[in-house]
Design a protein around this nucleic acid. Structure first.
Lengths: 137, 137
DNA sequence: CCCTACATTGGACAAGGTCTAAGTCAAGGC
DNA sequence: GCCTTGACTTAGACCTTGTCCAATGTAGGG
């Protein structure tokens, strides 16, 4: 966490209370909050933080490569703090819970040249779908 | 296309002019329209069709398994008529164009038991990202 | 400790999508 | 062929998510 803040400082980030709180709220594994959830949790620690600042900060962290946007459905975008460790997602179709997973193999090389249509392919996202243990009752 | 309408009729779908037009608009390969685009094209053939009906019809086709929702970014959901033929997607990060692709291998079996967290895994989506030839200039 | 460029704020705005109440019509029964 | 009825459609209000802006506040270098 303090690593993150240090890295950002080195890149010229001005360290404000708001930005620190947003970074704190996002720390951890299997964390995939929406912007509004981030705002709600940030408000607990810093009541006067505004929605606009949360959106701004999330956007900055995404462009700095510290945060990943995950859009699993037509609802709110979720933010994934594990941008520095590559991984994929396992999603519960009932409750929407997301887990980080690490499949074997290399999905990128599974796309043959003939299926690339002239695109320069730079990455691949895998989203596994299923029902989580809590919803399986 | 008439196959689709026939299948739906057998499942108790009442066949209206609006539903027929929506189905017609979605026919074809590499078609990934947003709801508003569907509405715009449907309006050309049936000027009085409403937005609500387009949304209703798209939603019904999705639950019937005839249509796939694709949410690649934080923008409008796109609808993919190739739900009956399994495939994945290749997406241009600049202009958002989507192509249907068929990678080799079985991504489902690439997720080991230890990474399933007790979920019943039923499917997997692959989204390749890159730059399309038109944007590569 | 001051200055200033950068950050934050609240509220207006926009896009995508859902809901409702009232009117319309497909299709089965006669 | 016509009636009936419950499913379908409609317009528009409304909700949620996200963006933008002008005014205000403040981190951090000098």
């Amino acid at each position: 966490m303090s690593d993150l803040l240090k890295r950002l400082r080195e890149r010229g980030w001005r360290l404000t209370a708001q930005r620190r709180v947003v970074a704190e709220v996002l720390a951890g594994d299997h964390i995939h909050l929406t912007a509004d959830e981030v705002h709600a949790r940030a408000t607990e620690r810093l009541p006067e933080i505004s929605r606009a600042t949360v959106y701004n900060t999330l956007g900055e962290l995404v462009s700095l490569g510290e945060l990943l946007e995950v859009s699993t459905d037509h609802r709110a975008t979720r933010y994934d703090p594990n941008a520095r460790r590559p991984h994929h997602h396992l999603l519960c179709d009932r409750c929407g819970t997301i887990r980080d997973v690490h499949p074997t193999g290399d999905a990128l090389s599974a796309l043959p040249e003939s299926e690339r249509f002239g695109y320069t392919v730079s990455g691949v996202e895998l989203t596994y779908r299923g029902i989580c243990p809590d919803c399986a009752v």
